[in-house]
Amino acid sequence: HPLLNRWALWFFKNDRSWAWEDNLHLVTKSDTVEDFWAMYSHIQLASKLSSSCDYALFKDGIEPMREDSRNKRGGRWLVSLAKQQCHSELDRLWLETLLRLIGESFKEHSRKVRGAAINIRAKGDKTAIWTRAAENQEGVLHTGRVYKERLGLSTKMVTGSQAHADTATKSNSLAKNKFVM
């Protein structure tokens, strides 16, 4: 079953003796549903990763970094997970995120989605959907609404969208949310 896009899985493991880009590794690419599941069943669950590791699933040809020219004007919807959320909840959220991406669940806004990332951090894990344009209110809000709805996130849980241009100059936690849901 062919996917509309070919998706690349990236793995990041922070090692301070190397430059940031050197810690980012392309794992594999999937362009069918079967490839995707083969990939998913061969990698560690996100909850098993050590702190300061990331996974990212991005459309082929786009690197999961702000510096990629196609991400410069973009942004992300960020979901911060409380530390007390259990591992199974983290894995569930990440898998649901992946399924929304490969299934192109964002309908006409799917073209505006670049990919998604999960960051495992001691302070609290985070997942985010990256979008093409941070300023396109309709597109950003639609993506955020669908993301939250499909992931079954509580309506009380606050998610925020940030422009990469803002997170590049401030620490992530201080970056201003352009839209909040």
């Binding site: 079953h1 062919p2 996917l3 509309l4 549903v33 079967e34 599941w37 998913y40 649901e96 399924l99 929304r100 490969i102 299934g103 192109e104 669940s105 309908k107 499909r150």
Partner: peptide, 18 residues
């Protein structure tokens, strides 16, 4: 081109099929 949209249910069924 043709839109290929898969819902969650279909994707999960593919996972479980041999």
């Amino acid at each position: 081109g043709t839109r290929i949209i898969y819902d969650r249910k279909f994707l999960m069924e593919c996972r479980n099929s041999p």
